[in-house]
Design a protein around this nucleic acid. Structure first.
Length: 712
DNA sequence: TAGATACAGCCTATC
DNA sequence: GCTGTATCTA
């Protein structure tokens, strides 16, 4: 290799270089915080291309966010020094959607299938519960949506729920009935939820050999970012794509697995060597971000966790400033002491944008914001409502979805009576019934009901008004810009009028949002492109560019870094959060501790940790005790400040106990007996879910606790 | 269908 | 204590 081809290896340390140069076979890169994870990923892609091991189109790189995907492309191109079109770099969902649009017919969809969001899911579940006469006091619709999503995350099909031992009883009988009807309804309306995007691709590859061969050949090298965040479905998805060549490189950090609540399985990364035979593991342990004190604190704290690969981060940088623990009488005092420190930093010419205040939960921001406002320190809250998630914007998008697709029943349901057209529950039920009986979309049903004079009175007038609006809009779609189309809908539907006549307080903001929305539409070439963007690339908008302090949650801080970081509310109940402990026990506690680790390692130069002895929560005063995590920090790295009660450092370390996952009882190839399916053979293990080839010939996913081993 | 009233829920979140 | 939503009543 000549040096010209080699510049992508510049500036890598030996571990990083080892990871980049490992070409074939499974590779796990355990990358501690600030150790150059993205650098390795992007250098590796550049290396594969520069050495001609792969064409750009043979590379599949998967991320969890669009931001990460975008950054990856940019950095690969920067390393190589030229534009690299054709790489498949994107989120699990956008890549899945792309593949599904090509193969939709094989799954009973059309290539223009709709992607639905949480609002749609909830609306659908409510409708189904009502149709089944299930009382929403008994079965909470939101909980059902969560359960269904979680089942999809675990690749548990509606027909498989019965096999899972832990879902028994009347409640689950109801939920799984809803699950089945929910899926039927999605199929009927040519729609996918986010879980389906992954599951359909799994089905496509698993059931169609030609298809699987095609993609196994096409994607020679697979790269996965943030592997610790993958759920069971994503894991199965990856295995299918890696089948045959096993050229899969997963990068992640088990110590930063903080998304258990949305289905992530830390076991995936802990199990990597077992899943992929002959896997090579490279640990990146040199940290380039933080001072030694900060790093030592993070290391000592995370070392309390039992379930981890175990890395020892080191740095060549100096001790730096000690971590300041700010103790305070109450939450207002906490905010004020933070603001005081910020004032000092300001005087010393620190940029405010290099300062971050991290909270466990959003309610903590109230008193912090008040204090910042008092002192006129500019701040921004990172996260929160995205532009396209605003109600008024979603309503107009629903109109566009109906204009775009006859089959989008859920979008239609959202806006058929917004603004009011005298089309209430009864009218909608009539359209829905007709649509089911005749097996046509609801929009078609409406047209036919009108044509055949099957509706009368106010409902007839309302439906006529609605269809004429949609039909006119469809005409416009042919020869007008999207911007004009949206403007037309907002006016002609009476939406604008409705807003103006309403007594809401923020009408002007909403009208302004709608105007902004119309402007934003001009960036898109067609409606399909826009709708795909809205569902899959809904990015956070950049707020004011003024130099301001960042306030964000620990979760959204992952992947970011700041010179100065304030970690707030280190009190039992808030952090670790009560509900994590109640719902997930030791497992929950370890995840909270990883969250603390993520928080600490965000700081480059100076870290503050604060707590209050008293806190007003939902307007009730509560006495709080300092977080146990404080006692897990090394004495030599911290200094105490403030007038609140000191925390007791002579605390006996509580040894945490673990229930070994029941799946650990089994291994691939074991003969097992299932409580209701009889004898079978273990095909694979995913967390506490076991894939079993049953003697009946059927292969199913079941939970470990519904299985007994069947050794002679 | 507007307006009043009752009532639950209140942690984190990408696509 | 506040907020969004479900349900009831005129």
């Amino acid at each position: 290799m000549n040096t010209e081809n080699n510049h992508h290896l510049n500036q890598l340390n030996s571990a990083q270089e080892e990871a980049v140069k490992h070409i074939n076979g499974p590779l796990l890169v355990l990358a501690g915080a600030g150790t150059g994870k993205t650098k390795v990923l992007t250098s590796r892609i550049a290396h594969l291309i520069a050495t001609k091991n792969a064409l750009p189109s043979q590379i599949l790189a998967v991320t969890f966010t669009n931001k990460a995907a975008k950054e990856m492309v940019e950095r690969v191109e920067k390393i190589l020094g030229y534009e690299v079109p054709g790489m498949y770099i994107g989120t699990f969902h956008s890549i899945s959607a792309r593949i599904l649009r090509k193969n939709a017919e094989l799954l009973g969809l059309t290539s223009s299938f709709n992607i639905i969001d949480m609002d749609d899911q909830l609306r659908l579940v409510k409708r189904i519960l009502a149709e089944l006469n299930i009382d929403t006091d008994q079965v909470n619709p939101k909980a059902v949506v969560n359960q269904i999503s979680l089942w999809k995350d675990k690749a548990i099909k509606a027909s498989d729920v019965d096999d899972i031992g832990s879902y028994h009883g009347n409640y689950y009988d109801a939920v799984k009935q809803v699950y089945k009807l929910y899926n039927d309804e999605l199929q009927r309306s040519n729609s996918c939820d986010f879980g389906d995007l992954i599951l359909h691709v799994i089905n496509l590859l698993a059931s169609n050999e030609a298809c699987q061969n095609y993609y196994n050949k096409k994607f020679k090298y697979i790269l996965v970012d943030e592997y610790q965040d993958t759920n069971v479905s994503q894991y199965l998805w990856l295995r299918l794509f890696a089948q045959g060549h096993n050229n899969i490189c997963c990068v992640g950090d088990d110590d930063q697995s903080i998304y258990g609540f949305r289905g992530a399985e830390i076991e995936n990364i802990l199990r990597f060597e077992k899943d992929f035979n002959g896997a090579k593991i490279v640990k990146l342990e040199q940290n380039y971000r933080s001072t030694a004190h900060i790093l030592n604190a993070a290391s000592k704290l995370i070392n309390t966790n039992q379930k981890r690969h175990g890395k020892t981060l080191f740095t060549e940088s100096e001790g730096g400033k000690k971590i300041t623990i700010l103790s305070n009488w109450d939450d207002n005092a906490e905010s004020n002491s933070i603001i005081q420190e910020i004032e000092t930093l300001k005087i010393r010419q620190h940029k405010l944008s290099n300062i971050a205040i991290l909270v466990r939960a959003f309610f903590q921001t109230r008193s912090i914001e008040e204090a910042l406002l008092n002192e006129a320190i500019p701040y921004k809250i990172v996260g929160g409502l995205r532009f396209y998630e605003r109600k008024e914007i979603k309503d107009i998008i629903a109109y566009l979805r109906v204009v775009n697709s006859d089959s989008d029943n859920l979008a239609l349901e959202r806006i058929i009576n917004v603004p009011k057209r005298a089309l209430g529950a009864a009218a909608f039920a009539k359209c829905n019934d007709y649509s089911r009986t005749k097996d046509v979309s609801i929009y078609t049903a409406i047209s036919e009901l009108l044509k055949n004079s099957l509706v009368t009175g106010k409902a007839k007038a309302g439906l006529e008004e609605f269809t004429s609006l949609i039909n006119d809009a469809r005409q416009m779609l042919q020869n007008s810009s999207l911007k004009d189309l949206a403007k037309f809908i907002i006016e002609r539907s009476g939406y604008e009028e409705m807003l103006k006549a309403s007594k809401e307080v923020n009408i002007d903001t909403k009208l302004e949002n709608l105007r902004e929305f119309c402007e934003a539409l001009s960036e898109f070439h067609n409606l399909d492109e826009f709708l795909e963007h809205v569902s899959l690339v809904n990015e956070l908008q950049d707020q004011n560019s003024e130099d301001s302090v960042n306030i964000l949650t620990l979760h959204s801080a992952k992947g970011l870094e700041f010179d100065t970081v304030f970690l707030t509310g280190w009190e039992e109940g808030i952090f670790p959060h009560q509900r994590s402990l109640e719902e997930s026990g030791d497992k929950g506690l370890e995840e909270e501790r990883r969250l603390a680790y993520v928080g600490i390692t965000r700081a480059r130069k100076k870290l503050y940790i604060s707590y209050a002895n008293n806190r007003r929560i939902y307007n009730k005063w509560q006495v709080s005790t300092p977080s146990r995590f404080l006692r897990e920090l090394p004495d030599e790295a911290i200094e105490l400040k403030g007038s609140g009660t000191r925390f007791n450092n002579s605390y006996q370390k509580k040894t945490s106990s673990f229930n070994t996952t029941s799946a650990a009882k089994f291994k691939v190839g074991d003969n097992v007996i299932h409580t209701s399916f009889g004898e079978g053979n273990v095909k694979s293990l995913i967390g506490d879910v076991v894939e079993v080839n049953f003697e009946s010939g059927k292969c199913r996913f079941v939970t470990a606790n519904s299985l007994k081993s069947n050794c002679v």
